[in-house]
């Protein structure tokens, strides 16, 4: 099932486990993300998708397992280090810096994540604002944004850190069809610039337009992995998604 590996993975996770007390959220997860690819992750709620992102981005220490990025072992590194190395993430529930303006949210991300000086960070922030359709809201307080703009801001702020790999967590939810098209266009253009993308999404038709490979997770494990069409046709995946009746 595994896609033919043609390059060294940019991100490699081996045997990643995460438990909260007796609750095991991730079971021996192995993932390879290839440079420049767009990898989709699907799975029912509670499958451990967001927890996997947290583990990759360093939001919390994993219980066991190894993660490396561009050949660098990430064990023991903090979220801020990983961001500076080039891993950016968005949050499923947007977490903007509410006491700051939209522009300031991006500015600090460009200054800290990409280590740009004030002038370069200003340019980066303004570019990202235009690309994500937030330019008009630049000087508005982040607290004044509605949910959709907050989701945009999540993506914009992650992009401002100048990532090599971006972890997108359900950024399509609640968008109208035309907004989804704009989002797909944005992600495709980012990919054409060489950005590696991992995207968790429930809105499959949007996801399928972007990703070249798909992983389905269920109950903290990887259930299936490969060509998007094949994965969605997989019987186990269908069962996990549609819910099997207990036998």
């Amino acid at each position: 099932m595994r896609a033919v590996v043609t390059a060294d993975p940019i991100l490699r996770a081996r045997g990643v486990n995460k438990s909260y007390g007796a609750l095991k959220v991730l079971h021996d997860v192995d993932i390879d993300v290839l440079p420049g690819e767009a990898l989709g992750i699907v799975g029912p709620n509670g499958a451990g998708k967001t927890t996997l992102f947290g583990a990759l981005a360093g939001s919390f220490p994993v219980t066991s397992g190894a993660i490396s990025f561009n050949g660098i072992d990430l064990t023991g590194t903090r979220a801020s280090d990983r961001c500076q190395l080039g891993i950016a993430r968005t949050h499923q529930v947007p977490r903007p810096f509410l006491g700051m303006t939209v522009f300031e949210n991006l500015l600090v991300a460009a200054q800290s994540g990409a280590r740009l000086d004030a002038a370069a960070a200003t340019g980066r922030a303004a570019d990202v604002l235009r690309r994500t359709g937030l330019a008009d809201a630049a000087n508005r307080p982040a607290a004044a944004l509605g949910l959709l703009d907050r989701k945009r801001l999540e993506v914009a702020r992650a992009l401002a850190t100048g990532p090599k790999l971006i972890l997108l967590d359900e950024i399509g939810g609640g968008l109208t069809e035309s907004e989804l098209i704009a989002l797909v266009d944005l992600i495709q253009s980012l990919r054409s610039e060489g950005l590696t993308i991992v995207w968790i999404e429930h809105i499959l038709h949007a996801l399928m337009r972007v990703v070249t490979r798909l992983i389905c997770m269920s109950e903290g494990r990887i259930l299936a992995e490969g060509e998007p069409r094949d994965v969605m046709a997989n019987a186990e995946v269908q069962r996990a998604y549609l819910g099997s009746s207990p036998e």
Binding site: S59, C83, R95, F97, Q111
Partner: peptide
């Protein structure tokens, strides 16, 4: 930069770490 970073931490410490602070 330190001032901007401090305000980001004040608003959301985990999100601040996620943007490299």
């Amino acid at each position: 930069r330190t001032g901007a970073e401090a305000q980001a931490i004040r608003d959301d410490e985990d999100a601040a770490a996620s943007v490299g602070i």
